[in-house]
Amino acid sequence: MKKTGFFNIINYSLITLFSLFCALPLALLFMVSLTDEKSIIKNGYQLLPEQFSLEAYKMIFTGGHDIFNSYLVTIFVTVAGTLIAVMITAMAAYTLANKNVSHRNTLSLFFFFTMVFNGGIVPWYIICVKLGLRNNILALIIPSLLFNPFNLFLVRNYMNGIPDSLRESALIDGAGDIRIAFQIYLPLSTPVLAAVSLFYGLAYWNNWWNAIMLVEKKNLYPLQYFLLKLKSELTMLTDLQGSSAVLSTITMPTESLKMATAIITIGPIILLYPYLQRYFVKGLMIGSIKG
C-alpha cells in the first residue's frame, strides 16, 4: 500500500511538471501582453509582472488596422477554404466507399501516390505562378490546402462502415448517387466530417506557407504571416545588433503590443479549444482504429 502511494506521488508530479512545461510558455506570452511597458524595460519579460496594463490591447483595438485586415483575410480564407475542402473531400470519399464503383481501389492508389511521391515545392511554385495564383486571395485558398488525401481516406474509412443496404435501397427508390451522397452518406458521417473540418480549418488558420510563397501585397497577409513579418523586423532590430541603443531611435510597436498581437491571433483557438480537442482526438481515433 505504501509503495503505491509513493508511486502515485511521483507519477502525479511528473505529469504535472510536463503540463507546466506545455502551459507556462503560453502563459508567459499572455502575461507579457498584459505587462506595462516600463515594467518590461526595467525587468524584462516576466511571468508575474510588476505592473499590469491593458494598454497594448487598447492600442490594437483602437488603431490596429493592419492586424484587423489580416484577421479578416484569415477568417475569410479559413471559412471559404474549409467549406470547399470538406465538400471536395466528402464527395470523393463517397465514391471511394461506393461498392458499385469497381475501380475504387485504383482511384485510392491514384490519390495515395502523390502523398509519398511528388515534385516538391519548386514545381508546385511554378504551377501556382502559371495558374495566376499570385498576389490574390485565391492563392491563399487553393494551393496545398484545398484537398488532402489523408482526410479523404479518413472519411472514406468511416463511410465504409455505413451499411451498403442503405445505398441499395435508396437506389431502388430511384435516388441517384448525388442524392444518396448528400442526403444519406454526408448526414450519417457528421462525426468524421466535423473532425476533418477541424483539420482543414486549423490548417487554414495557421497557414503562412502560401503567403510566404505567393503573396507580396500587404493587404493580403494572413494573420500568421503578418505576425512573422512583425517579429522578423523586430528581432533584426534588437537582437542581431545585440544592443538596446537602436531601440530608442526607431519607432516600432512596443514589446507588450507585439505579444498582445500574438495572443489575439490564438484567441479563437483558445475559445474553441474544448470543441477542437474533442473532435481532434475523435478524428485521430477514427483514423487509427478503422484505418
Binding site: C22, L26, N206, W208, Q224, L227, L228, K231
Partner: peptide, 28 residues
C-alpha cells in the same frame, strides 16, 4: 488537454515564445 494544446499553435506563435525566452534585452 494541456499536453495537446501546443499542437494547435502555429510555429509563428512558438517563435514569439522563444523570443520571450531568449531575446537579448528582455528575455527571461
Amino acid at each position: 488537454s494541456t499536453f495537446l494544446f501546443p499542437h494547435f499553435i502555429s510555429w509563428v506563435i512558438a517563435s514569439y515564445i522563444i523570443y520571450t525566452l531568449f531575446s537579448y534585452n528582455y528575455g527571461i
